[in-house]
């Protein structure tokens, strides 16, 4: 049996543009279970980022209900939303968004500062996260001294360090070459298995799709297709 972490029911998201209205999401129904490694795919403008936004409590639904880890996104305050993101969610962006003035260690440590953990706890967690992404030798480097792939691995470590229940990743491979893309995808796949973290991607990258356990296709803001993919064979 699987826990439902995210329960989306009849979600619509409208934007008013000019005089009229534009619906970026239309009547979306979706249940996402613990341990999922799923992707929102679809053409540009189909509503992938919008959906991630709502799940990440960065935006609120126009209609319908979205329950994330037992919290109703349509009802929570900005403060509660921030608390949810701080404690339970991890974010990975297309452009890494590391803090340029801090070194790798401090970048990864930052979410733990918000959680007010002691420095020994923080140190243990950061070292563990560095190990997951294989960057133990770059602890003191500044982001400017890292390659794109290394930066994204730091970003993954930053998202994973607090062991969130759900990681939201918007186009995480868009700026990476094939080798680095596979590398970080394998890292995330490994963490999904190791920690049971749920990963939700928004992507149109075939390399990403190759790793997914579940693929939800959005077209014009509607769920067009929702399929479970067969386990991946060994890569050659």
């Amino acid at each position: 049996m699987q826990d439902t972490l995210i329960n989306i029911h009849n979600l619509s998201k409208h934007y008013s543009i000019g005089g009229g209205q534009f619906s970026a999401l239309k009547n979306v129904d979706l249940k996402i279970n613990a341990g999922d490694f799923m992707g929102l795919v679809g053409p540009s403008g189909s509503g992938k980022t919008t959906l991630l936004n709502v799940i990440g409590a960065l935006d609120s639904p126009s209609e319908g209900s979205v329950e994330v880890l037992k919290l109703k996104i349509e009802n929570i305050s900005a403060k509660q939303a921030a608390k949810l993101r701080k404690e339970k969610l991890g974010f990975i962006f297309q452009t890494y968004n590391l803090l340029p003035v801090y070194n790798v260690y401090e970048n990864i440590e930052f979410p733990l500062l918000l959680l007010q953990l002691s420095s020994t706890q923080r140190k243990d967690l950061v070292m563990q996260a560095l190990e997951w992404v294989g960057l133990l030798d770059k602890v003191k480097s500044k982001p400017a001294q890292l390659s794109g792939g290394e930066c994204q691995r730091v970003a993954i470590a930053r998202a994973m360090v607090k062991k969130p229940q759900v990681v939201l990743a918007d186009e995480p491979t868009a700026n990476l070459d094939a080798r680095n893309s596979h590398n970080i995808l394998q890292t995330m796949e490994k963490l999904n298995q190791l920690l049971g973290t749920t990963f939700i991607f928004a992507t149109h990258d075939a390399k990403v799709i190759g790793y997914l356990k579940r693929k939800v296709t959005l077209i014009d803001g509607r769920v067009e297709e929702d399929i479970t993919l067969p386990p991946r064979g060994p890569q050659c």
Binding site: G56, L58, A78, A82, K83, F91, L99, P111
Partner: peptide, 16 residues
């Protein structure tokens, strides 16, 4: 701008 945005995204409240 980026730092502030990121900090908001990863869960710092605006007040904090």
């Amino acid at each position: 701008y980026g730092e502030i945005g990121l900090r908001l995204a990863i869960g710092e409240s605006k007040e904090e």
